[in-house]
Design a protein around this nucleic acid. Structure first.
Lengths: 344, 344
DNA sequence: CGGATTTTTGGGAGCGCTCCCAGTTAATTG
DNA sequence: CAATTAACTGGGAGCGCTCCCAAAAATCCG
């Protein structure tokens, strides 16, 4: 049974309140007393009881990371581990703890309803001070829940609501750069494999693709647009659907889908980049390991995670700082072999 | 301000205690009253305050997942996401929440000392009911801490202590199968790239390698053993160190290291499997995507995660069930192209 | 050096919940 | 139908902490 404040107080010959002051670094404690109390704390290994503390203060020093995405994508995609690292790092640095909620929809309980139940528990039950949400589809029930319960939150990505704080990457510009690069290489029949279009990132990357073509005066050919799911398998089947329309280049909205596309192309007996050029998005480690190495759009994933946390914490600690906070980070085109170098 | 028990009680015209009984499914509440209370709960969206509850019950319904590994490996290795999925799934299924602690050692605070401080906070501060630990080196400070503070825990892996519960994979047998396969293919100069030897899994896989050779009467050649770090880069440099001793086959203790080895071999102008056969361990998704696809030892990673959680929960809920709980799951050899098929 | 400050200190109240113990009310039984 | 017994219900105490307020001690100043 670990010691309580009261016990420490008795041992140090002071009152509960004084020990509390010492622990919480309040001023107005004689240095001599303060030292005596610290000594007892050290010896007893005293540690404040989190529940008691948060019952009294209404703060938990815990933030949640919610990743509601249906699973397939999630865990073959190296995106998430990296994001998590950014998030975890920032939490450690600020002495917050991290609660992770993943939903895989594979068990009955993980249904839409079960998920909503868990959200309620987590948010209304005051397990958390605030939340970082990543990769949620636009219609995910987490958003209304957060808004309704007035829980401070930051999205990694974007959400169309006046009270939504977010940290995002400039997906439109990133995608445009990628497609412009293909245009520069002389391609005109450029296809795209999009992410699931109920996600903003997917929509934005498609928009970038559109803009690049429009700027070049190339009319949009709907047959050159195939929707994928950000995962490899989806990229592969999307590519198969695109093949009959003979694109000479493909912009995939994620590296995993680009890898899938690579596979589909190889199966169809086409060479990359000679017959078809491929560009991805994300620059996950795998991108440089496949054959041929992928040209891709790098996004600062880890930084996204830590910035989200830092923004959230600043929201928590200065609640009055008015206004909505939005950060958009730039992307960078990384050129490798998969798009070839065609002379115009 | 969300409603409290007391408020719900007033609205339903009963006492605090009765509402508590309803919420906690205690018997001895008239069905009619029970229904009335539920109705109020539904209308108000009442949700018990977690901190208040755990202050009173001394339970939090939160379990921790602690991954103390120095980072490089961690997040390029698809092992962790999969493990996490297993862990998260099991938590969801049993209505527990998951607290994640990762340490990357990249900031000052993430030093050994900072880490220990966080452990104390987490464990002594009663944030958690119990803990799952994965990929901790044998000398990690988490173990003494857990033992000393008497926190229920389950290791994914293994730890030499009488009170250590764990869920592990049969690394020795898995490694032996891999090496035996190479032996069967006629190899005699078989090298191995081990994991960091302060981890049990690495030691066990090395032991399996030893056993396979010994059973065949092949003397151990220390020059054919190189220590890696489970990550790609480490596998690559380890392979470079092995090359001068001209192995005809290599058993890498992780797929990521096998991929690194592949790279080193290619750089050295050697063909796989014609010149050197390669076998990995883990069967991560990447294993089947590289060229040539890796022969490897599959371990049920996700199952490992969910079993660890389930074991932990059963420990928490039936504390008197004596004895230590240990589960060892089997592995499976997956044969692909990287080891070739040599006729003896 | 005595009153006015200012700094320290202690203790009560309360955060929202569970659990135990009586007190009520309803059901059973001979 | 009175006497038991069982099924419900309410309220106090307490989980360990913070915060406020007032009392006590130390410091100041003319």
């Amino acid at each position: 049974m670990p010691p309580t404040l009261e016990e420490v107080a008795k041992l140090a010959g002071v009152s509960r309140s004084t020990v509390s002051r010492v622990v919480n670094q309040h001023p107005h404690v004689r240095p001599e007393v303060r030292e005596r109390v610290w000594e007892v704390i050290r010896q007893t290994g005293y540690q404040p009881h989190a529940a008691a503390r948060s019952l009294a203060t209404r703060y938990t020093r815990v933030i949640g990371l919610i990743i509601p995405q249906a699973v397939t994508t999630l865990f073959t995609d190296p995106y998430f581990p990296v994001l998590m690292r950014g998030v975890a790092d920032a939490c450690n640095a600020h002495n917050y703890h991290l609660m992770l909620s993943l939903f895989s929809h594979r068990r009955v309980r993980d249904s839409y309803a079960g998920q909503d139940l868990l959200y309620r528990q987590l948010l209304r039950g005051r397990y958390l001070d605030g939340v970082v949400v990543s990769s949620a589809p636009l219609d995910d029930p987490i958003f209304p829940r957060l808004l309704e319960d007035n829980v401070p939150f930051v999205i990694v990505g974007r959400y169309p609501h006046e009270r939504a704080n977010y940290v995002d990457v400039d997906n439109v510009v990133g995608a445009r750069m990628a497609v412009e690069h293909l245009l520069r290489l002389g391609h005109e029949r450029i296809a795209t494999i999009t992410g699931p279009l109920n996600m903003f990132a997917a929509q934005d990357r498609l928009e970038g693709y559109r803009q690049a073509l429009a700027a070049r005066g190339i009319p949009l050919d709907e047959r050159l647009i195939a929707e994928g799911d950000f995962a490899e398998q989806g990229g592969r089947t999307a590519m198969q659907r695109l093949l009959p329309h003979q694109p000479t280049a493909v912009f995939a909205a994620s590296d995993m889908m680009a890898v899938g596309a690579l596979k589909a192309l190889r199966e169809a007996g086409l060479r990359v980049p000679e017959d078809v050029a491929v560009v991805g998005f994300d620059d996950v480690p795998l991108a440089s390991m496949v054959d041929p190495p992928l040209t891709t759009v790098r996004q600062p994933i880890e930084q996204l995670g830590s910035m989200a946390v830092e923004l959230l914490i600043s929201l928590l600690e200065n609640p009055n700082t008015g206004g909505v906070h939005r950060v958009v980070l730039p992307t960078e085109l990384v050129i490798r072999a998969s798009c070839g170098v065609r002379v115009q």
